[in-house]
Design a protein around this nucleic acid. Structure first.
Lengths: 119, 119
DNA sequence: CAGAATCCACATCGATACTG
DNA sequence: CAGTATCGATGTGGATTCTG
């Protein structure tokens, strides 16, 4: 799911913004720091990750805890509401396991027929 | 779900493009004509609906059947793969019933606090 | 380390007008 | 009726740069 080469870009379903689902999964097993979220999501810029986290915070999905230390440390943690998104993530995974191959096959078949240069 | 005034715009989950989920629900109970899909989705332009249907067709979600009649008649119907999206639609509905009010409350609470004019 | 500010590329969505 | 063609508005995602 974290691999941009995986066919998840073909997924007909999306949770929140582009990185929301991955962030939620990252937080599944407990609080994580900003950098700890960034590491597995290697292609997300800090700006976008901040936006995603702020949106989740606004919607009561995560809590943000800043510690007054040097260097700074901030932890993000899923709320119960945020954990409820894991159910949706799971529903997506289940669907993908069962149906994504068929979608991919249909798509490439369509590309071969009515695709690039017509047919 | 078809009412633009409903809070579905706040839904943290989306199936396909903007109108995909609604189109799929429209086709739930059998084949429908282009116009029959447009009617309940009153704010969709023919261009966008065509794009949505073509995408669904490419992905093996719907079949398109054109009849050589005057006036023209075209019917769209869900494939088994397309019907599988209904499971996702249902998962979304279940989630919304249980958690959307909490999301909305958290969001408006955030708007009152750190909202428009900061604070 | 965690994040803010700025600018920009791109895709989606939509209004309008026209066609077989 | 069922589209197609063109143009414009908009929002999201990203690169880059800078700060406490």
């Amino acid at each position: 799911m974290f691999d941009p080469a995986c066919p998840s870009s073909a997924m007909p379903i999306r949770i929140g913004d582009k990185w929301t689902a991955m962030v939620v999964v990252c937080l599944e097993h407990g609080p994580r720091r900003f950098s700890e979220i960034r590491t597995p999501l290697r292609h997300v810029t800090p700006k976008v990750l901040t936006e995603t986290l702020r949106a989740l915070e606004r919607d009561g999905m995560v809590t943000r805890t800043a510690y007054a230390e040097i260097p700074p440390r901030v932890e993000y943690e899923l709320t119960p509401l945020g954990r409820s998104l894991l159910d949706l993530v799971d529903a997506c995974r289940t669907w993908a396991d069962k149906h994504l191959p068929a979608l991919l096959e249909a798509r490439s078949a369509a590309a071969r027929n009515g695709g690039p240069d017509g047919g």
